[in-house]
């Protein structure tokens, strides 16, 4: 078994690790780097619980290999808050009870943040289609969609 050496940036920190070429980015984050915020709900790219961004692109980390992170800029849910200040989406999710069990929450927050960066004024339909790759089995999405729409409105008002 030969491991590969990878140099990358995660949530702004320089990181180096060794990994098997078969290991997914999700495995590396969770098992090697102890960043367990991203979750594995399916391992096949269908649930979005493992969502991260790679060079600002939204990616299912279960579909990416750990070795592919070489030289990239990765962010995970752990990098969302700034110091002790939660991101507006994080605050709104708590306020709106947009989570029940919370297993889908890290992935949905990462995906929603990436949406608002691209489109600060999404329609309900745009939010629903953007998040269609993030399964939530508990909430029926109602409160999630409302939380994202209202955060977008707040952030537009603030800027």
């Amino acid at each position: 078994m030969k491991n590969t050496h990878v140099t990358t940036t995660i949530n702004g920190d320089p990181v180096e690790y060794l990994c098997d070429t078969r290991e997914t980015m999700l495995d590396v984050l969770r098992d090697r780097l102890n960043l367990t915020g991203a979750k594995e709900g399916c391992g096949t790219g269908d649930c979005g619980a493992c969502s991260i961004t790679v060079d600002d692109r939204l990616v299912c980390s279960c579909l990416m290999l750990g070795v592919e992170a070489e030289g990239k800029k990765i962010t995970t849910v752990e990098g969302m808050a700034e110091g002790e200040n939660l991101h507006p989406l994080q605050k709104k999710f708590i306020e709106y009870a947009a989570l029940q069990c919370g297993i889908c929450t890290p992935g949905i927050l990462v995906a929603a943040k990436s949406l608002l960066e691209k489109n600060p004024n999404p329609t309900e339909e745009e939010v629903r289609f953007w998040l269609a790759g993030n399964l939530c089995r508990c909430t029926g999405y109602d409160k999630i969609i409302r939380a994202v729409m209202d955060t977008a409105a707040d952030m537009r008002g603030a800027s």
Binding site: R30, L35, T36, G37, A38, K39, E40, T76, V77, E78, M80, A81, L86, Q90, F93, I94, L99, G102, I103, T105, P106, L109
Partner: peptide, 15 residues
């Protein structure tokens, strides 16, 4: 438990 769950700190079964 909201804070832990939106920041990825909450520890689930596989964590």
């Amino acid at each position: 438990d909201g804070h832990d769950k939106v920041t990825g700190k909450a520890r689930f079964g596989a964590d």
